[in-house]
């Protein structure tokens, strides 16, 4: 049976203000979905709600992974269940080396039943695998000795997120603007890497403003978010259209959602 991530009528508020107003989305393992939409339409909120950010309050609806209720789980349990998000703006954890962070993280995600204090995956195996993945991403090994996201450039942060994606090999991954802040070469590398690591091996939800990430990862489905709703779904041609023409047609076609989006953006 294929893994499936199902979001039904999801409603999410932040500090009492409604952001998502009923989102339905089903992603099957192996599929690539693009999520597009103007700023402030709720795209990142969807990602945070799936991961379980404590500030994002789910006021209605459900999220399930193969029928298991994700909303009942802590963020770490969701990660261990196989859900991953590449952060748009990952936080720095000073004093914690990337390699140590990743070894612990990989151990937990691969052994969901692991209890605190039990052995981590053997250092030798881990190092070999990390080295392999870093070479694949054209990352210098020195990177592993740096503190997590501490003093990283925008591009380095995004590559570090992709490295984590590669190590953790989740069932489903949400990539929240993994292309933003990167120059053309870096976007191409990111795009190729994601195709290599994730395409057809995971269910991908790619949140993006641009089509560059989608060149190597043509989506089977493109969803457009406006005012906290998915107003339109199409194939890869929809992503191309939005990239070329912007959101004018969408805004005009869905005035109610557009009004909500404007209100949210004005907050």
């Amino acid at each position: 049976m294929k893994h499936v991530l199902t979001i039904e009528n999801l409603q999410v508020s932040v500090e009492g203000k409604p952001i998502l107003r009923g989102v339905d989305l089903e992603i099957k393992h192996g599929e690539t979905h693009a999520l597009m939409g103007p700023n402030g339409s709720g795209k990142s909120t969807l990602g945070q709600a799936v991961m379980g950010h404590p500030k994002y309050e789910v006021t209605g609806g459900s999220i399930t992974l193969d029928g298991e209720a994700l909303l009942e789980m802590e963020p770490d349990e969701r990660a261990r269940a196989g859900v991953f998000m590449a952060f748009q703006r990952p936080v720095a954890i000073p004093g914690v080396k990337m390699a140590d962070f990743l070894r612990h993280s990989t151990t937990n995600v691969r052994n969901p039943e692991r209890k605190e204090g039990e052995d981590l995956i053997p250092m030798k195996d881990f190092r070999r695998e990390l080295k392999e993945k870093m070479e694949q991403l054209q990352m210098d090994m020195e990177f592993a000795r740096r503190y997590v996201n501490d003093g990283f450039s925008g591009g380095e942060m995004k590559r570090a997120e992709i490295l984590q994606l590669a190590m953790l090999q989740p069932k489903f991954a949400i990539l929240d603007e993994t292309d933003s802040g990167l120059d053309a070469d870096a976007v191409r590398l990111a795009s190729e890497s994601i195709a290599d690591i994730g395409r057809e091996k995971m269910g991908l939800l790619i949140i993006t403003h641009h089509d560059k990430l989608l060149v190597h990862n043509p989506p089977e489905f493109t969803h457009v978010m406006l005012g906290g709703r998915l107003v339109e779904t199409g194939g890869s041609e929809l992503a191309e259209e939005l990239h070329s023409n912007g959101y004018e047609r969408i805004r005009a076609a869905y005035p109610e959602a557009e009004a909500e989006n404007a209100a949210m953006a004005g907050q």
């Binding site: 802590e74 963020p75 770490d76 954890i93 000073p94 004093g95 914690v96 962070f101 993280s105 937990n108």
Partner: peptide, 26 residues
């Protein structure tokens, strides 16, 4: 920071330990 580490599979307690140890790492 705790949330980020949790999203990578650390329990809240493990995340706290990680962050405090990191604080002293310098």
């Amino acid at each position: 920071m705790i949330y980020y580490a949790q999203c990578r599979g650390f329990t809240r307690m493990e995340a706290m330990r990680l962050i405090v140890t990191g604080f002293f790492q310098q």
